[in-house]
Simulated scan of single mutants.
Amino acid sequence: MVEGDRTIASVAASYGLVAQTVGNWVAKYRKQHADAQEQRNESEAQELARVKAELHKVRMGQ
């Protein structure tokens, strides 16, 4: 998993790797999967807008 709470340095150390190498791998992965992440972000933004609009309607109805 690329997104997590561990630092690149701690992951590298736990596997006996150089942090720069792991950082390069992470950067490459993120670049290759940027479109999928952008789609998730857009989908989440749309859902948030929908929920906010619904909340507004509910508050106005009270």
Rank of each mutant, 00 (worst) to 15 (best):
H33Y: 00
Q20I: 11
E38C: 03
V18Q: 05
V22P: 12
V51Q: 13
A13D: 02
L48K: 04
R50G: 05
S43E: 00
G4W: 04
A36F: 07
A49D: 08
Y29A: 06
V26F: 07
S43F: 06
V2P: 10
G23A: 05
A36P: 00
E44I: 12
A9V: 14
K28W: 10
A53T: 09
K52G: 09
A53E: 15
D35K: 01
A27S: 04
Q32A: 12
E38A: 15
R6G: 00
Q37S: 07
Q46P: 00
E3S: 07
N41C: 00
V51W: 12
S43K: 05
Q32F: 09
N24I: 00
D5M: 10
A36D: 13
A53S: 09
S10V: 11
R40K: 04
R30T: 06
A49H: 13
M1E: 12
V26M: 15
S14A: 07
G23P: 09
E44R: 04
R50S: 06
Y15I: 14
Q20A: 15
L48G: 01
Q32D: 14
K52A: 08
R6W: 12
K31N: 02
E47A: 15
E44A: 15
K28I: 09
A34C: 12
Y29C: 03
W25F: 04
R59L: 15
L55R: 05
K57Y: 11
E44N: 08
E3Y: 13
K28Q: 09
V58W: 13
K57Q: 14
S10P: 01
Q39F: 09
Q39C: 03
R50W: 02
A19P: 14
A34Y: 04
G16L: 04
